[in-house]
Design a protein around this nucleic acid. Structure first.
Lengths: 262, 262
DNA sequence: CGATGATTTGAAGGAGTTCAAACTTAGTGG
DNA sequence: CCACTAAGTTTGAACTCCTTCAAATCATCG
């Protein structure tokens, strides 16, 4: 049932982009990257960072709606997001789709592929994006000599586990309002860490994607947005969102909010 | 809101057990353990296995309902289950509990603690159980010289990620029947891998635990059991379960089953 | 502008929950 | 050995939150 494609869907485009990518390669280094303190090189010294840099020979561009990898693809690289946003999703035997996460700059894609040597999910760009391709076997070679790198890699994998478990809590235990509030608060704090506004940002994903991720329908998401708007919790126009009462949303997400009917 | 307890709840008991554990230490080695091919030492040669063995100085017993670790506990050890079953669960700010998994022999507990240096979940024994305590810092020291060990450790972390993502698919997309079928099939295959019957086994967890894990109520689980029984899919008596039609359950879990009303 | 896809809103329906009570099991002590 | 209790499980009935279905509205782009 699962599509096995060794060659990326947009092979020609990818090839074209890889050229462009390699051109800018020399100047795009981990050491000069603004995500240094979020991404894989976190905590590394200059020498180590350079070594890591030396194995990342390709920066790939992925167009909006383009697939970075497919479920079933042979695993050989991890990808660090340099720019843009991605979603990862699984497809079950009967074709049902479940979005397992939305990823942004500095986050690592593909860690779920290590166990079976094949990707276990699809990664799709939500906008035109760029990733650093990290050949995993090369990375493994570095681990022996760079304990700091290894340690941070473990942290990132562990973080992925806790993220997924939080999503389980959300899907298993929360009501629709709480889920949506938690979703917004989560985005907010991730933008904050990256130096962007925690109150105003753009939703890179469709209502459908949000609904799928939260285990709700698109209509429910739309209704939730309207309801939150009416309560003065936020403003939305299209995909542009402004959180007017972040504290209230946080309380709601924690489930400690006093239920305000309306 | 989360309880930070440095000292385990049952400190005295744990101490008493550690003595008992250390007594049997010398004879309980990874090399002679039946879980060798499932657990951390998978793929290691004799010399490497011995080295790994040398850092595992404690085997801990955990009584039924006893906590192996608490959410908020300082992280220092991973635990490999030697014997018995565990559940891990999270507790949200408002006290809602979500079981994030049921673990059995050969599986690793505590990997979600690496990222924040504190455990992010509770691990509770579902029956009297035994674990091998793996000091993580010692394990890290081994990684440099034992690439095979490191590789398998990565596989185990990655496996945890895929497991959690499958749970997300289950919680986000499946109807109650499908969830429950998937749960049973999952248990069945895990027992099979361990050399036990894939058709008859004991549910180590309460109906309440099952419900919590699957995002359903205890009443729903009870009704599902009755319904499956009536359809001839299984037999239950108490916690003893026998799968009478595993193929049908598998189809149901995949969502490809022809819906049989009744 | 017109068409296509995405979003919003309304109304009806249903899957699973909640509440309540009966029943079963296992553990305790007389 | 049985009465008694407490905890766990099953079953029934009413309800509710969210879904489903349907239609209107809005946004985008050739």
């Amino acid at each position: 049932m699962q599509t096995i494609s060794i060659v990326p869907a947009k092979a020609t485009e990818a090839a074209a982009n890889s050229c462009a990518g390699e051109r800018q390669d020399r100047q795009v280094k981990c050491s000069s990257c603004s995500l240094h303190q979020l991404c894989l090189p976190t905590g590394l010294g200059d020498a180590d960072t350079q070594q890591l840099d030396s194995i990342i020979v390709r920066r790939r561009k992925v167009q909006r709606d383009g697939n970075l990898f497919h479920m079933g693809d042979r695993f050989s690289n991890l990808y660090a997001i340099r720019l843009g946003h991605f979603k990862t999703h699984q497809v079950s035997a009967d074709g049902a789709e479940q979005i397992t996460g939305f990823q942004m700059a500095g986050e690592l894609l593909g860690m779920d592929a290590i166990s079976a040597d094949r990707h276990n999910s699809y990664a799709v760009a939500l906008e035109d994006s760029e990733v650093c391709e990290i050949p995993f076997s090369k990375l493994e070679e570095l681990f022996g000599a760079m304990p700091t790198l290894l340690r941070h890699f473990h942290r990132m994998m562990s973080q992925e586990i806790t993220r997924d478990q939080s999503a389980m809590l959300l899907l298993g235990n929360m009501r629709a309002e709480q889920r949506f509030a938690a979703f917004l608060v989560n985005l907010s704090s991730r933008y904050k860490v990256r130096g962007y506004s925690s109150l105003g940002f753009q939703l890179r994903m469709s209502r459908e994607d949000i609904g799928n991720y939260l285990g709700l329908t698109i209509e429910s998401i739309s209704r939730l947005l309207s309801r939150f708007k009416k309560r003065g919790l936020l403003k939305v126009s299209n995909r542009e969102i402004e959180l007017l009462d972040l504290p209230a949303l946080k309380e709601m997400a924690l489930g400690t909010a006093v239920t305000t009917a309306q």
